[in-house]
């Protein structure tokens, strides 16, 4: 009759599950509340009046929002294309190769943007562009921001491409070479298609970090070079309407969709 104790599950530690749930709540409740209030029909950020898409309409009819979105897209797409291309080349020159002199140093330089605190990069880049504008009269306009973004996008693009290359089987390349495929053809027909998922998630990551960047953009941006995060920042300092929630929600959705898609792609490939 005595109740038998359930066998001890060695993996369970008491309280850890509730801690995990707390963590998840901490991470998601603020974002969800922010998103919820973007559908508020009233014009006060924190007082719920009813559900509507009114503030999305307001945001989409706003010229400032559009020009900010346009700038953001120009910068993020350009930086992503440049960063992903040079990162792919670098990964090919540095992964699965016989170590060459300076390889370690090159690796450190590639990862440097990840190690320098963002605010330091921001003021250094600002000083750099101020100096070349002052001494050489060079100002690339929005190109300044594209260059600044490309620098910190490169390591983010590089990591997944390198990881993918390391996982790749070299026998296929050798087989192609054995069948007298010229190196360029081997690369185009064998290496590149196999590498594609790595390049794609590298591009997705650099797009996200460029799209979301605030600190570096804020310090480097010239007049008229407002991006979406800068636009939100300008809105915070005025009396706020739920329009800011709507725009924030759009920004969050871009990241969420990109992360989820690239996560699912890598998951599928691994199976």
């Amino acid at each position: 009759m005595a109740k038998r104790r359930a066998p001890l599950d060695i993996k369970v530690l008491p309280g850890f599950a509730s801690m995990a749930v707390i963590c998840l709540l901490v991470l998601y409740v603020p974002i969800l509340v922010l998103m919820l209030f973007s559908f508020n029909s009233g014009n006060i950020v924190t007082h719920w009046e009813g559900i509507s898409l009114h503030w999305y309409g307001v945001a989409l009819q706003n010229d400032e929002f559009f020009s900010a979105a346009e700038n953001t897209m120009i910068i993020a797409v350009s930086a992503t294309v440049i960063a992903t291309s040079v990162a792919t080349l670098a990964a090919l020159g540095m992964t699965r190769v016989k170590p060459w002199k300076g390889l370690t140093a090159a690796f450190m330089v590639l990862n440097l943007p990840l190690m320098v605190p963002e605010i330091v990069t921001a003021v250094a880049t600002l000083s750099f562009f101020a100096l070349i504008a002052g001494k050489l009269g060079l100002n690339f306009g929005i190109g300044n921001l594209i260059i600044a973004h490309t620098v910190f996008c490169i390591p983010f693009a590089y990591m997944p491409i390198k990881a993918r290359l390391e996982d790749m089987d070299t026998t296929l390349d050798h087989a192609a070479a054995d069948l007298y495929a010229p190196p360029w053809k081997t690369f185009r027909r064998i290496t590149l298609p196999l590498l594609a998922p790595g390049i794609m998630s590298g591009a997705a990551l650099s797009f996200i970090v460029s799209f979301d960047d605030f600190t570096i953009t804020q310090l480097v941006a010239g007049p008229g070079q407002t991006t979406l995060p800068l636009y939100i920042w300008n809105q915070i300092r005025r009396p706020m309407t739920p329009e800011i929630n709507a725009i924030s929600t759009i920004l969050l959705m871009v990241s969420i969709v990109l992360v989820a898609v690239s996560f699912l792609v890598t998951l599928k490939k691994r199976r």
């Binding site: 020159g93 540095m94 590639l110």
Partner: peptide, 16 residues
């Protein structure tokens, strides 16, 4: 391989 790595290194070197 050095040549392949060069563009990335140049961008980070000059602008980083």
């Amino acid at each position: 391989n050095r040549l392949l790595t060069l563009p990335a290194l140049l961008i980070i070197g000059i602008f980083g």
